[in-house]
């Protein structure tokens, strides 16, 4: 059954009947606690990815690897990150994959892919809250492409660590490309730090954003943050 399904998958394209792929769907679900079956399934999926299968077939494969993919699938997926038609679906698999090699592949790609695709790669690092990418993002924060700089800022906000906040603080007081995104990210960092019992760090961020030179929306957000820190401390 699975052999036939993968044979059909080779010819799969938009408009194809999806019913013959049911054995693949079944294999994903039932192999949850069957390591050998899942390894075989993953190998078949990787082989399809490396074949001349259609874009839709590879999209389908990436959706399945998003659930079953392991470090074994990372090289094949990483090779797609720079390809306009495949980059997003490769991230679909890599972004949620627990293997640290998946994060490394995304970090590596920030130095290789086009700016258009880089924005997506950076956002995937944010979704992973990848603390190891702070130094990479620090550089991208000053990228000449505003979309890249904005993505880097928002991703640092999603990471929300002390290190991420430190990088954003410097950007907030310099000629950052997208100051509003930097400030939004700083506020997100403060929220994460407050939730992580780092009130002192959070309070310092909020105080820095409560000054008169900030826009009213930011000052109000910072004031709410200061109150939250104070009430938590007391």
């Amino acid at each position: 059954m699975l052999d036939e399904a993968f044979a059909v998958l080779k010819q799969y394209d938009w408009g194809s009947d999806m019913a013959p792929l049911a054995p693949i769907e079944d294999a994903v679900a039932v192999s949850h606690d069957q390591a050998e079956v899942r390894r075989d399934l993953e190998n078949r999926l990787i082989a399809t990815l490396q074949s001349d299968a259609s874009r839709d077939a590879k999209d389908y494969v990436c959706r399945k690897l998003a659930i079953v993919g392991t470090v074994a699938a990372v090289p094949a997926l990483a090779s797609m990150l720079g390809q306009k038609d495949y980059s997003h679906m490769a991230r679909m698999a890599l972004e949620r994959m627990p293997a640290p090699e998946a994060a490394q592949a995304l970090r590596d790609a920030t130095g290789k892919v086009s700016n258009e695709l880089k924005v997506g790669v950076i956002s995937s690092l944010g979704s992973r809250r990848d603390a190891a990418s702070v130094s990479v993002l620090n550089v991208l924060l000053n990228d000449g492409d505003p979309a890249v700089a904005r993505a880097a800022a928002l991703t640092l906000g999603a990471i929300g660590s002390v290190d991420a906040a430190a990088v954003l603080k410097v950007a907030a007081t310099s000629a950052a490309r997208d100051k509003p995104a930097v400030i939004d990210a700083l506020l997100a960092c403060a929220e994460a730090l407050l939730a992580g019992q780092k009130q002192t760090d959070a309070l310092a961020i909020y105080r820095s954003l409560a000054a008169d030179n900030q826009a009213r929306l930011v000052r109000l957000a910072a004031t709410r943050g200061i109150l939250a820190c104070t009430s938590k401390q007391s």
């Binding site: 997003h88 972004e95 627990p98 924005v119």
Partner: peptide, 14 residues
Amino acid sequence: ANRLVDRARREPWQ
């Protein structure tokens, strides 16, 4: 299951 908490968004959306 945690892999299904979210999904990657097509660039440039974040």
